[in-house]
């Protein structure tokens, strides 16, 4: 299987890449790590007339803390998250996810920005970034703007980037004291998409949960937060009953579809279980 024909550009600067996007409009696709796009092109699910390869633009790959945030350059490879001391020591939710995205060979090329810009609800980073309350930076012909992650995902494979904008950076708030996070995923085999996965970020104070954000993977047409599950936790002591209530809330509010990975009822119940387990792990880390 070989992709359809396209014109290939490999700009050296972000400005050049943006002007190519302006010129070619929705005929163009950005090529980042290519680990989702190239398979989609091989299956002819994606037939871009123009491919803009941003791998030769310097300065889009970095991980650093600044002003209370972890800044992740869009072209940061997934493997860099696994190798980063900052991520491994302080951003446990992100570190958990980094170890279970696709497989190690794919992670050598796949990028954090690409994973988010692809906006596939089966991808892992959308739920992670929803749980973190991250911010996405987008560069276009009129400069750079911030997009709150809650406003980013708009539909299946759709997001609020304009067709002439490029996702350049993701900003994750540095976890406050008493905050813990975790990501747990059940997959049929390594490299498959999740049957269901949960991303949880909790803040605990004196045994009470004071803040909670929960993202779900591959159980809805659009990457989603489990807001009812979050509400079941906030202000509560996290007893077994409270955690069960949060799991049940997530099971009720998710919207999975039946496929080879299971029925709707199975995926809802699995989501209940995954949310509960992930809350427990996040709690341990918060304390």
């Amino acid at each position: 299987m070989i992709p359809g024909e396209f014109d290939y550009h490999s700009p050296q600067t972000l400005a050049e890449a943006i002007s190519l996007l302006v010129e070619h409009g929705d005929e163009a696709k950005i090529l980042a790590g290519g680990q989702s796009l190239i398979p989609a092109m091989r299956f002819r699910l994606a037939l871009p007339g123009t491919l803009i390869d941003i791998n030769r633009i310097d300065g889009l790959s970095y991980l650093r803390e600044e002003n209370g945030h972890l800044l992740i350059g869009a072209m940061t490879r997934e493997s860099a998250l696994e190798e980063s001391d900052i991520v491994q020591s302080k951003y446990h939710l992100l570190a958990d996810a980094a170890a279970v995205i696709a497989d190690p060979l794919v992670r050598n090329l796949a990028t954090v920005g690409g994973n988010i810009a692809h906006s596939d609800p089966a991808n892992d980073h959308p739920a992670v970034m929803l749980a973190y309350g991250a911010t996405v930076m987008a560069a276009g012909p009129n400069g750079t703007r911030r997009i709150a992650i809650d406003d980013f995902f708009t539909d299946l494979f759709e997001n609020s980037l304009e067709e002439n904008e490029i996702l350049t950076e993701i900003r994750i708030p540095t976890p406050a004291a008493g905050t813990g996070g975790a990501y747990l995923k059940l997959e049929r085999k390594v490299g498959d998409y999740a049957i269901s996965a949960a991303a949880v970020q909790l803040t605990m104070s004196g045994g009470t949960c004071t803040a909670a954000r929960i993202g779900l993977t591959n159980v809805s047409p659009v990457p989603m937060r489990a807001k009812n599950a979050e509400q079941a936790l906030v202000g509560q002591t996290l007893t077994d009953d409270v955690i069960e209530a949060a799991g049940q809330a997530a099971a009720a509010e998710c919207d999975p579809s039946q496929d080879l990975r299971g029925s709707v009822a199975y995926k809802r119940d699995l989501t209940r279980v995954m949310v509960k387990r992930t809350i427990r792990k996040a709690m341990e880390r918060a304390n």
Partner: peptide, 25 residues
Amino acid sequence: TSQCGACTIHMDSQSVKSCTVLAVQ
């Protein structure tokens, strides 16, 4: 389909699946 790894090579000192990279890259 980018899953099996039979096509693994080293590109600039990293293991990659060569079925999921364009030659021009």
